[in-house]
Design a protein around this nucleic acid. Structure first.
Lengths: 163, 163
DNA sequence: TATAGTTACGATATAATATAACAAAAACTG
DNA sequence: CAGTTTTTGTTATATTATATCGTAACTATA
């Protein structure tokens, strides 16, 4: 088991978030360059906004932020950017929240587990090969060709249990 | 690993579905009685409709069906029934599809895994304690109080791989 | 540096999913 | 039966996501 180090567990977070954002953007830029694809200003900005929120954020939340500086922004603007960012693995979608979070370890495929606090709304991504491998085995045992997987758990984070 | 027997793997399904529905309704009725809660005609009917579709079905799909026989049905009608059915564990929500399926093993809490075919849209629930236990361990290791979990994998079922 | 091909973005409309709020009816409880 | 709780009816609206089509920007190749 390993909780991601690049984005410490949110409810243990004591650092300022700025460096995380910068690092994530830089990493994305490098990956795009190596893949020959374009991290356009718009896509970069949406990625920054995703990271700027410390919690999973909805598409329309991002849209509101984006509109302040980019008056032409409309729903497709955000959804296209998110689609791109998810395809490239820079952003994950939290299915149970209809919300998006930055991936703290882009560049290599990893099947994360999300722990989502029902109270504060924060989500933490955990890396684990065990769960992913188990699912892989189930799938291949049934002749099912796996394309993606989503593992989400909800409950109360330590901080919110006290309150 | 065990694929549920009460609802055989969909892409291996050769039986008529009627008995599954009846069995699921009967089981739900018995559970409701034992819990002292009401499986009203409306709730029962929605549960039947969920089962009547062999695949995950959206709330508005259910609503269309329900309207045919129940002209006063509106979105809240269906959503309330689904909420009840999910609380009682008779129905699961497939987060990645915004759709609902009958639970083939209600009555005792079980953390299922869903394999979802991106082509035919069918979903199969698999029971597995391993994945659930792994997630439990992660959570308690972090002091996270787990309330629910959702494990969904998408890909191509055997039948749809050929086509 | 033209120019054809591709990719990305703008702009509008609408689809699909879900909930709020309050009134009316039905079912339970003493 | 009267009071209470639960369920359903009804209307309106919120939230999330896509379709479509036109325009602009970038890319590659000559």
């Amino acid at each position: 088991m390993s909780v991601s180090k690049t984005t410490p567990v949110a409810w243990q977070r004591t650092h300022s978030h700025g460096r995380c954002i910068d690092g994530a953007i830089d990493a994305a830029a490098r990956i795009c360059e190596s893949r020959g694809i374009r991290l356009t200003p718009l896509r970069r900005r949406v990625l920054e906004l995703v990271w700027g929120n410390c919690k999973p954020v909805g598409a329309y939340g991002l849209l509101d932020e984006l509109k302040r500086e980019h008056s032409s922004a409309a729903p497709p603007t955000v959804y296209r950017a998110l689609e791109f960012l998810m395809e490239q693995g820079f952003v994950h979608r939290i299915q149970s929240l209809n919300a998006y979070v930055g991936c703290n370890d882009p560049g290599h495929s990893h099947k994360g587990i999300f722990l989502i606090c029902n109270d504060c709304g924060d989500a933490v991504e955990i890396e684990d090969k065990g769960v992913a491998n188990t699912i892989d085995r189930f799938a291949s045992g049934l002749g099912f060709l796996l394309a993606s997987q989503s593992v989400e758990a909800a409950g109360l984070c330590p901080g919110c249990q006290e309150a």
